[in-house]
Structure formats: structure tokens, C-alpha cells
């Protein structure tokens, strides 16, 4: 029982954080058909910017909402700044290129973003633990659990809800869906696809940065820590279906829970099992579990 609760808690928390990051990746892929390796760069930058902001604010329990303000602001700034520059000056010039070349370009961008971090923030690890410390912990079914990590699950639910509401209930959401469905038809319908791409890329980047920024208080933020996250969120997106929002949710849950189970029960399988699932899904259902519908091209 104790074990089950531990696995569930760990799994759900990890899934929540993966979901926020992967959502950004899957939206970018769904709309722009770009597999963005630089997403890891957004993630790392979000984490670093939030970390130094929190450390700058210091251990100050009277202004604790400022921590959260800093976290969200970091995500927005990183998404806007790098998203704008990367989309406008690099990716926009590549949309007619081979899909593999675009992935490679984002790979190069990832390297660049990684090294920029070293120059801006230095090589020493940052530990912005104040928000997590402030919220303390509670006992869940006999297990001690940090409250801050639990709020991550809340954030994931809010993000999922906003995303669902935006796509299903708003006019812009419908525009986006039509672009996802068929780019050429959308252009002929008078939708400004260039603008949609830019905004999508920025929002995707913001989500990646938010994942990093929000997780920062619970970890030690050090150079290179984003590398695993990129591939892990690739696995999530592939399992769920590239470009599918519900897919990102289910994919994160699968990866989060399986990983938590492996970590506690069979650490030897920790990495192996996730990629094995990814491979199996690709073999059985290459489009992923929740593949978005495709237009029929005659």
C-alpha cells in the first residue's frame, strides 16, 4: 500500500511536469510539423531565469507570491524572447526544407542555447529552494510529500484546462485546429499562417520554459540537466501521438507512472522501459495512441 502510494505520487508529479513540457512540444509539432529539439533550451532557460529571480528575491516569506510571479514571468519572457527570434529569423526561412534539416537546425539551436546559459548564469549549480521550503510538506497515506511538488499537479490540470478551452471554445482555437488539419486549405481560407506559426512557437516555448521554471525549486539547476528532458518529452509525444493534446496527457501519465514504478521497484529498468514503450507504440501504432486526424490527400 505504502509502495503503491509512493509510486502514484511520484508518478503523478513527474507526469504533471512532463505534460507541461510535452504539451509545448506537441503543439509546435501539430501546427508547424517541426520536431523542436531546442525545446530543451527553452526548458533550461526557464529554469535558470526562474532560479536567479528566486535567489535574488531571497528567503522572504512575506512576499512569497513574488516567487510564483517570478516563475511565470520567467517562462513568458523566455518564450517570447527566444521563441520570437528563433521562429522569425531561422525557422521561418526553412519551412520548405526537408523535415530532417529542420530538426537538425533546432538541434544546433539547442547547443547554442545550452552554451549561452554557461555564459550568462555560470557553471555553478543553482538551488532556488525557498518556495518549496516555504510550503513545507504533508503526510499522504503515511508518506511525507512536499506540498510544492503537489501544486505541480494542480498547475498541469490548469494548463490542460486552458488548452482545452482555448482549442474547443474560442475562435482562435478553431483557427489553430484548421491549420493543424490542413495548412494549404487554411491559407486559401485567408488565415495568416505565418502569424499563427509565430504565436504557436512562442506559446510552445513558453510551456517548455514554464516546465523548467516551475520544477526549478525542487531540483539543483545545473548545466546540461535539460538533455534528458528533451528525449523524455520526445518519448511522451511519440507515445501519445505527435501533435495531439490528449495524447500528450496520456503519454505523460504513462511515462510518469511507469518511470516511478521502475525507479522504486526495478531501478535497472528505469531508462530502458520508457524507450521500450516508445518503440512498441511506434511499432504497433506508428501515429501514436491519439493520432490527430489527417486530411485525405488525393
Amino acid at each position: 500500500m505504502q509502495f503503491l502510494i509512493t509510486v502514484l505520487l511520484d508518478g503523478l508529479i513527474y507526469a504533471s511536469y512532463l505534460f507541461i513540457v510535452s504539451l509545448g512540444l506537441t503543439i509546435t509539432f501539430g501546427v508547424m510539423k517541426i520536431l523542436n529539439v531546442a525545446h530543451g533550451g527553452f526548458f533550461a532557460w526557464g529554469a535558470y531565469l526562474a532560479s536567479i529571480s528566486i535567489i535574488y528575491l531571497g528567503d522572504n516569506e512575506y512576499n512569497s507570491f513574488l516567487y510564483y510571479f517570478a516563475i511565470f514571468l520567467s517562462a513568458i519572457i523566455v518564450g517570447l524572447f527566444f521563441g520570437y527570434i528563433i521562429e522569425k529569423f531561422i525557422l521561418r526561412k526553412m519551412y520548405n526544407e526537408d523535415i530532417h534539416l529542420i530538426v537538425l537546425a533546432t538541434f544546433g539551436l539547442f547547443w547554442i542555447l545550452e552554451d549561452l546559459i554557461l555564459h550568462v548564469f555560470g557553471v555553478d549549480p543553482l538551488m532556488p529552494y525557498y518556495p518549496a521550503m516555504e510550503l513545507g510538506g504533508i503526510e499522504v497515506g503515511g508518506i511525507f510529500q512536499g506540498v510544492y511538488s503537489l501544486t505541480l499537479a494542480g498547475l498541469a490540470i490548469i494548463v490542460a484546462f486552458i488548452c482545452w478551452y482555448f482549442l474547443k471554445k474560442t475562435k482562435y482555437g478553431k483557427v489553430l485546429q484548421s491549420v493543424i488539419f490542413d495548412r494549404e486549405v487554411s491559407v486559401s481560407m485567408g488565415i495568416n499562417v505565418t502569424k499563427v506559426y509565430l504565436i504557436t512557437f512562442i506559446i510552445g516555448g513558453m510551456l517548455g520554459a514554464l516546465g523548467g521554471a516551475y520544477i526549478a525549486p525542487t531540483i539543483s539547476v545545473s548545466p546540461g540537466f535539460a538533455i534528458d528532458v528533451v528525449v523524455m518529452s520526445f518519448a511522451v509525444v511519440v507515445i501519445g501521438g505527435m501533435g495531439s493534446v490528449p495524447g500528450a496527457l496520456i503519454g505523460s501519465l504513462i511515462v510518469g507512472l511507469v518511470r516511478a514504478f521502475a525507479v522504486h521497484q526495478a531501478p535497472i529498468l528505469e531508462l530502458f522501459i520508457i524507450y521500450a514503450i516508445m518503440a512498441i507504440v511506434l511499432i504497433i501504432k506508428p501515429e501514436g495512441l491519439f493520432a490527430p486526424p489527417k486530411p485525405r490527400k488525393i
Binding site: L104, A105, F107, G108, L109, W111, I112, E114, D115, H119
Partner: peptide, 14 residues
Amino acid sequence: AWQMIIGGTLLAII
């Protein structure tokens, strides 16, 4: 900056 140099080279080639 070696990753940056490699990343930059990659973009330049593309």
C-alpha cells in the same frame, strides 16, 4: 563555447 561553435557551424552549413 564549443557547443555554441558546433551549433553555429551547423546552422551556417544548413
